[in-house]
Design a binder for these strands. Structure first.
Length: 270
DNA sequence: AGCTCATGGCGAG
DNA sequence: TCGCCCTGAGCTG
C-alpha cells in the first residue's frame, strides 16, 4: 500500500509508538539479523519519511532504510506473538507496541551520509514543508516525455504513486500522453498544488480521496466506494465504469509497465 | 490449493 | 521493454 502518504503516516506512527524508548529489534526471518542485533536494546530516536523512503534512527550513527516497494507492508499494533516468522524481516517492539515489516524492497542499515545520498536523488516531496515544486517544474517543462511518465518519476515529485498520478491528471483534465514541455508553469503549479492538497489529508485519514465536493457520493446520490485500496476517486481502478463527470467509460491501458486510467472525453488537452 | 494482480523500482539486454 | 524481486488479498476451482 505504498504511496508517500502511507510512508509519512508510518513515520508519525513509529515516532508516537517508540519515540525516546528502548526497543527490541529482531529479524525473525533472519535476513536482517546481523543489523538488528546491532540495534537491539538501543534507544529509538526518530523516524522520517522522504517520498516513499523511510529512515528509522535507533541508537547513534546508524539508520534503517526502508522502502516498501509494491508489496511491502509495515504494520503497527499491540504486542502479540510472532506469526509467520519466515516472512517477518524486521520487528521493533516495546512492552506496549510492535512494528512488523514484511516483504520490503529495501531494509538496510545505512549511515547518515548514505541517507543524504538517497534523498539527494529525489525530487521535492509534496508532503514536506521544505519542498520546492519548482525543482519538479525544471524537469517537466523541458521534457519530451509524457506527463504520465514524468509524474511517476521520483525526481519530479517524490512520493507520488499511481493513484495520485491518475487522479491529478484527471482533476487537471490533462491527457496522460501530453509531453511535459507542452505544459506551462501555471499548469504545473496546479498539478503540484493538487499533490499537496490531496496527499496531506491522506496522511491524516489513511486513505485517498480525490473527488471534488460536487462529485462526492452524497452530492451525486451514488453509493460510497467501499473497496480496500482507498477512498473516493475519479478514475483509478475504475476501468469500464462511467466517468463521474461525463459518464463515458473510463479507459485503462498498460503504460510503462503500470496501469494507467483516464477519461478520454474529460482529458483531451495535449 | 492454485492463480493473478498490486499504491515500486531495479538491472539486463 | 521486459523480467524479476518480495508478500498477501481476492478471486477461481
Amino acid at each position: 500500500m505504498p504511496e508517500g502518504h502511507v510512508i509519512h503516516r508510518l513515520a508519525g506512527g513509529l515516532e508516537a509508538a517508540f519515540g525516546g524508548q528502548i526497543v527490541r529489534v529482531t529479524s525473525p526471518q533472519g535476513r536482517f539479523a546481523e543489523a538488528a542485533s546491532l540495534l537491539d536494546g538501543r534507544r529509538f530516536v526518530a523516524a522520517e519519511a522522504y517520498g516513499k523512503h523511510l529512515f528509522v534512527e535507533i541508537g547513534e550513527g546508524a539508520l534503517i532504510h526502508v522502502h516498501l516497494g509494491l508489496i511491502g507492508k509495515l504494520r503497527l499494533g499491540e504486542p502479540q506473538p510472532v506469526l509467520r516468522p519466515e516472512t517477518l524481516r524486521l520487528r521493533i517492539e516495546t512492552a506496549n507496541a510492535v512494528a512488523e515489516l514484511r516483504g520490503p524492497q529495501t531494509c538496510a542499515l545505512i549511515t547518515p551520509g548514505e541517507r543524504d545520498h538517497v534523498v539527494a536523488g529525489l525530487g521535492p516531496d509534496p508532503l514536506r514543508a521544505d519542498a520546492d515544486g519548482e525543482r519538479g517544474w525544471a524537469r517537466v517543462g523541458r521534457s519530451e516525455r509524457p506527463i504520465a511518465s514524468l509524474l511517476l518519476d521520483q525526481r519530479v515529485a517524490a512520493g507520488v504513486g499511481n493513484i495520485f498520478r491518475c487522479e491529478a491528471l484527471f482533476r487537471q483534465r490533462l491527457h496522460p500522453m501530453t509531453p511535459g514541455r507542452e505544459l506551462n508553469r501555471r499548469r504545473w503549479n496546479r498539478i503540484w498544488d493538487d499533490f499537496v492538497s490531496l496527499m496531506a489529508p491522506a496522511v491524516v485519514v489513511g486513505r485517498i480521496d480525490t473527488v471534488r465536493d460536487e462529485h462526492t457520493p452524497e452530492a451525486m446520490g451514488r453509493p460510497p466506494r467501499v473497496d480496500a485500496h482507498g477512498g473516493e476517486v475519479y478514475v483509478y481502478r475504475r476501468a469500464g465504469m462511467p466517468c463521474l463527470v461525463c459518464g463515458q467509460r473510463v479507459h485503462a491501458q498498460t503504460f510503462e509497465a503500470r496501469n494507467l486510467y483516464w477519461c478520454n472525453r474529460c482529458q483531451r488537452s495535449r
